[in-house]
Simulated assay, not measured.
Amino acid sequence: MRTTVRRTALAAAGLLALASLTACANDAAGTASSGSGGDGKGTKVKIMVGGLDKVIYLPAMLTQRLGYFDAEGLSVELLSEPAGVQAETALVSGQVQGAVGFYDHTLDLQVKGKEVESVVQFSHAPGEVEVVSTERADDITSPKDFKGRKLGVTGLGSSTDFLTKYLAVKNGVDVSEFTPVAVGAGPTFISALQKGAIDGGMTTDPTVATVLDKGAGKILLDMRTPAGSEAALGGPYPSSSLYMQTDWVNGHKDTVQKLANAFVKTLKWMSTHSATEIADKMPADYSQGNKVLYASAIKSTLPMFTDDGVMPKNGPETVEKVLKAFNPTIKNADVDLSRTYTTEFVQKATG
């Protein structure tokens, strides 16, 4: 009887958690679709973002807030999932027409028989930071010390998972010798770090800024700049991007061009405005009550962004090298990098 009651209670708790997550997703979508005008007119496009409030994906919401989608005659609905791998799933299942997430998913999907390409490359560095808890800072001084550790990632199969595995293997630690733990970002990541559920982990701003502000952790590796990417990964690492299924791109070139126009305009705007000015354009709740800290987080991450949406030279090769180092599916596969991105639309947008 006691077991039955316990199972019933657990089931009820699960349903409650699911309802809460659904409500959060709906709230995010509602906030996004309201945009700066949000009259619902124009060509409708749904884009799933691997965390709308993450600074690495900031161009998605900023483009909405600046009114650039509206100006192109687009009615864009921005949806949010906590991890890029979930945005990828939404795209390939046809729930959305575009995804804002890491470029590396295009290589992974090609090997799995899915043709997906980056059409606007937001960045030339990962924007990721490996942090370690304050209590473990003396024990974990480089990725060589990952052995036996519990390391936080946004989700299993996510880009943070990919990069963590690469850093481990590059430094002599097998992927079987540490435990990746899916803890998301923001409050869930910070809580896991503070409670000892993870010894460290890979995350982005504004989570990084909050971790440092709370004294919950210290930076081990900083990949928010091209120089940081070069040091950790050996080259430019194109990360956040707008990627779409190739068949859809080829069948909707006019719409894709309008999206590229809007995003490139945003990237140019970002390159000529301060972090504080950018923060002022974002939804108020993104700062979590501390606008100064939020602006600081944006400032730390700004170097990762391109100003033209063009794929950085040798960037795809760096990503392939990283994935082949640990991913058995890609390691022995022939990846056609030319099919993982296109500059057709951004070249016209910048011309």
Rank of each mutant, 00 (worst) to 15 (best):
K144L: 02
A168C: 04
V132L: 04
E177F: 01
K150R: 15
R149C: 07
E177C: 04
S176Y: 01
V131S: 08
G157R: 07
D145Q: 07
G127Y: 06
F178W: 08
V129E: 12
I190H: 04
L151Q: 08
K147Y: 02
A182L: 01
A137D: 03
P180H: 11
V153Q: 05
M202S: 12
D161L: 04
D145V: 01
A125Q: 09
S159K: 04
Q194R: 14
F189L: 11
F178C: 06
T154K: 14
A197T: 08
P126K: 06
S176M: 06
L163Y: 07
F162W: 09
T179I: 07
L167C: 04
A192S: 15
P187H: 10
T134M: 03
V173I: 12
D139S: 07
P187C: 11
D145M: 03
D138N: 11
S191Q: 15
G196M: 13
S123K: 09
G172P: 00
E130I: 15
A192C: 10
G148F: 08
P180R: 07
K165R: 14
F178I: 06
E135N: 03
K147Q: 09
V132T: 03
K165P: 00
L156G: 02
S142H: 05
P126C: 03
P143H: 05
N171D: 10
V129P: 04
F178R: 12
A182R: 07
A197I: 09
I198R: 10
G152Y: 09
F162D: 15
V169R: 15
L163W: 04
G152L: 09
D139M: 00
P187T: 14
S142D: 06
I140Q: 02
L151A: 05
K147R: 15
A182N: 08
V181R: 04
G148R: 06
E130L: 14
S176N: 15
A125E: 10
V169L: 08
A125H: 11
N171R: 03
I190D: 10
S158Y: 06
A168F: 03
V175Y: 00
T160G: 14
D138H: 02
E135Y: 02
R136E: 14
R149Y: 01
S158Q: 07
T160C: 09
H124R: 15
K195D: 09
D161R: 06
V183F: 13
T179K: 15
T164W: 03
A192Q: 13
T179N: 12
L163T: 14
G196F: 10
N171Q: 02
A182P: 12
Y166G: 05
G200I: 05
L163M: 13
V175R: 14
D138T: 14
G155H: 13
K150V: 01
K195C: 03
P143K: 07
K150G: 00
L193R: 08
Y166H: 12
V175F: 04
G186L: 12
S142I: 05
S133K: 01
E135M: 01
F162S: 15
